[in-house]
């Protein structure tokens, strides 16, 4: 995790610092420009004017993993792609989050039974924070996923556990 985490002794009251850090983190989750298949169209729709992901501070789609906090795995992950996906995830700076969007990313979806080349769930490759089911999910559902991620971020603490 980030440098500041885990350097304070347990018992030291850091709730206000926590609150400020989490507030700034969860209001600026920059996603990576990373759409693999058709769910990416819904992700683009979420980023466009009508649904406007900028209202959550997540509108800046970064073109490099170094600047991104969130990887929205929007689409089918093949075995060939899994290697690249893992590498991109490892290039992202801490703290990093992953949303598995759509049936394909969660479990293989329509390729679950007969797909010879599809990873059955992206959680085998990278740790997933929020699952957004749907085929594809509505843009509102992706916004809900980002709000669930914000809820998760707001429970973080920098104190030693």
């Amino acid at each position: 995790m980030a440098l500041i985490e885990g350097i304070f002794e347990p018992g030291l009251v850091v709730t206000t610092v926590d609150w400020v850090l989490n507030w700034s983190r969860k209001r600026s989750i920059f996603p990576m420009t990373f759409g693999i298949a058709c769910c990416a169209i819904e992700m683009i729709a979420t980023g466009a004017a009508r649904f406007d992901i900028d209202r959550f501070g997540s509108g800046a789609f970064r073109a490099t993993p170094r600047q991104a906090d969130l990887m929205i795995v929007a689409g089918t992950v093949t075995f060939k792609m899994a290697e690249r996906l893992r590498r991109l995830w490892e290039q992202m700076a801490e703290p990093r989050y992953v949303i598995a969007m759509g049936a394909c990313a969660i479990s293989g979806g329509p390729y679950h039974v007969h797909g010879y080349h599809v990873v059955k769930g992206v959680d085998q490759v990278v740790p997933v924070d929020v699952y957004v089911p749907g085929c594809p999910p509505r843009p509102e559902a992706l916004l809900e996923g980002i709000m669930r991620l914000q809820d998760k971020i707001s429970t973080h603490t920098i104190a030693k556990r």
């Binding site: 997933v128 924070d129 089911p133 559902a141």
Partner: peptide, 12 residues
């Protein structure tokens, strides 16, 4: 109901 996003795959 349009959304069921959750934290664990088993919940789905």
């Amino acid at each position: 109901i349009h959304d069921n996003s959750c934290y664990r795959r088993e919940e789905l």
